[in-house]
Design a protein around this nucleic acid. Structure first.
Lengths: 118, 118
DNA sequence: TCCTTTAGTTACTAATCGGAACCTACTTTT
DNA sequence: AAAAGTAGGTTCCGATTAGTAACTAAAGGA
């Protein structure tokens, strides 16, 4: 359990939103959510292949964190070699909708800034 | 410039949302936005007083970052001792509205979880 | 003269993050 | 029969990063 830098040092977050924000930010997290939402269920190796540069360790960490947050399902099949698939939970889907709203803002601002610079 | 762990190592974020997420997460950031949106313009010392446990360095960092992201206005008056006030920009206000949506989700989930546990 | 106030810096230390290498339990290749 | 490969991770360790504590400036007040 490494990725829990959350609200450990300071308990200023009476609001659960802060911990939710912590959960979904970080290098690869929103990318994982986006992949799972746009491509459905994916296996560990498939995810890794779609994220060039990520290490197994980091991908595992992120997925475990998202699973712990109830945003991602982990489906483990103890075959040999084992098969593990990930998919979004209903909450994950809900969250993705809100993130899309954020994305709209980000894109608009980006467009505005680019326009101004041009 | 300390809080810029952003997408330095990996440039996987073609999407501006990721950097926006990085900007607004982190220990105190959303709390600052909330204070400024609910209480209007505040001076550095006032902010610090309302955030028990934060250090000057961290508060400065966060404010500078938010200013750099165009979410917060910094109004410096070179009196002795100097007076510095902070307030939300229009973008900061827009963002806060979206964050409220996220907050609604977070609160609902929190409520659901509490209910289940009870 | 010394202390207080405001808004930060600097210096230092503690924590965290991520990459490289390793692992399991079986299957396929040589 | 031995070696290599596969899937999905762990473990170890170094480098970065974040945060706390102490210091600063410049004027006014006791």
């Amino acid at each position: 359990m490494a990725t829990q830098k959350l609200n450990k040092t300071h308990a200023h977050s009476a609001c659960p939103m802060d911990s939710l924000l912590q959960t979904i930010s970080g290098p690869w997290t929103s990318y994982i959510l986006w992949l799972l939402s746009s491509q459905g269920t994916l296996r560990f190796g498939e995810l890794k292949a779609k994220m060039p540069g990520i290490s197994s360790k980091v991908l595992t960490e992120r997925l475990r964190m998202l699973e712990g947050a109830g945003l991602v399902n982990r489906d483990y099949k103890p075959t040999i070699p084992p098969s593990v698939s990930y998919s979004l939970t209903p909450r994950g889907t809900e969250l993705k909708d809100v993130l899309d709203g954020l994305n709209v803002l980000a894109l608009r601002w980006h467009a505005e800034d680019t326009e101004v610079e041009a």
